[in-house]
Amino acid sequence: MNKSSRTVYQHKDFYLGLVTLFITILLIWQSLNFQYPSNVFPWVIEGVMVILSVVILLKAVINKQNTEEEKQSPANWRRITGVFVSSVLFIIAIPIVGFYVSSLITMTLVSWLLGKDRSIKSLGRSFLVCAVITIFIYIVFRVLISVPTPEGILI
């Protein structure tokens, strides 16, 4: 393992400690006005959380040795962000457009963006496959077990 990847791992632990510490402080601030006995458990858990965050933070700062054994594969952040952003847009669109139509659009876009081939032809292929998946989901959820789905302008 080379030196640069080791630093990356330490950064990860450092940020993990920092973020959890920050969140815990926020929660402690919220829980200051809790009354007994509903304050006992939050305070105990927050205490443990502070200790753990500080330990992880200090370990990342002091310990130069890499604690993580397995080397993770480098993430393709563009793909991850793509899936995440599409999902968020999907959730926003559901109440406006309707569940099934926005599902079809989201799935088509996600599978097209994730594929290697970004041609219009491949977009069409994605659309066809996802139309079949959507019909399948419609039959299972709407027809067979009649789960109510949010409806917008369309279905």
Binding site: P95, S103, S111
Partner: peptide, 25 residues
Amino acid sequence: IPAKYVIAGMVVLSVIGTYSLRNSM
């Protein structure tokens, strides 16, 4: 089966599965 369709389908299934718990966005 290409992973891209698995991902796309599972995202939609996660959403509808969760929504059907209590009909809550």
